[in-house]
């Protein structure tokens, strides 16, 4: 296992509430730079809620609140002086369902860039190519950049979304079950991509698929009913978990 890298994001006794209902209980996690941190657990365990708290996507839901600390680079992302738009620009996100805009492939990739003002054509073309290359999609779509992104296959759409997310050069990449709607071959491609992308990004991955967590992640956290049961290096979690619940889950005794 590679040596420890510095901590990119961390939480301290982070709790989250949907109205009166508490969804996360006192979560303490360190997420390391250039590493893949995976969260596993049964549906409704809070892993997606946790992920969406990092880039404050949960702000969109009415009457939610949190307690405790969520830090990126030592800054509380819920601090009063934090601009949520800038924050989300630094923290990219890939969703469970691929969400290409009903625009061309080119426009999908340049969407994030053009938000901050006009860019030259050559600059845009450069970013489109480099982003699509990073998402291992360039060779497949380079001849139809100006066709609708909706014409791509499901696996290609998801890689397009990854390309779109990296186009604005985020520091952290959040992935919310990015392969749950993909066939095994596309899943393989995306997983390969994740291991490549961690050279440049800190990746936080939520997955239903334990094998996926074992294959691609460096650290794994196991969530159960809003609590972080165990968090450790992936190898440790999958070979010698210290908690009985973790062992039961990864050996398939429940969940």
């Amino acid at each position: 296992m590679a040596k420890e890298t510095s901590i990119k994001a961390r939480t301290q006794t982070f709790s989250f509430f949907y109205g009166q209902k508490q969804a996360l209980f006192d979560i303490n996690i360190d997420m390391h730079e250039n590493r893949v941190t995976a969260f596993i657990g049964p549906s409704g365990c809070g892993k997606s809620t946790f992920l969406r708290s990092i880039n404050r996507m949960n702000d969109l839901i009415e009457s939610t609140k949190h307690t405790g600390l969520m830090e990126v680079d030592g800054v509380d992302v819920y601090g009063s002086d934090v601009d949520v738009v800038t924050l989300r620009r630094r923290i990219g996100m890939v969703f469970q369902k691929s969400t290409p805009f009903p625009k061309s492939i080119f426009e999908n990739i340049t969407y994030g860039l053009t938000l901050t003002g006009k860019k030259s054509k050559s600059e845009l073309e450069e970013v489109v190519e480099s982003s699509l290359r990073r998402a291992a999609l360039w060779e497949e779509v380079k001849d139809r950049l100006h066709h609708s992104a909706l014409g791509l296959s499901g696996g290609q759409q998801q890689r397009l979304c990854i390309a779109r997310a990296v186009s604005v050069n985020p520091e952290i990449l959040l992935m919310d079950e990015p392969c749950s709607a993909l066939d095994p071959i596309s899943t393989g491609k995306v997983e390969e991509l994740i291991t490549q992308l961690k050279d440049q990004y800190t990746i936080v991955l939520v997955t239903h698929n334990m094998q996926q967590a074992a294959r691609v992640s460096d650290y794994t956290g196991f969530f159960l009913m809003g609590k972080l049961i165990e968090f450790d290096r992936t190898r440790t979690i999958f070979t010698s978990p210290s908690k009985k619940e973790t062992e039961d889950y990864i050996t398939g005794r429940f969940g």
């Binding site: 996507m57 969703f95 805009f101 997310a165």
Partner: peptide, 8 residues
Amino acid sequence: EASLALGA
């Protein structure tokens, strides 16, 4: 959400 997540 996809748009907002890109910093829009």
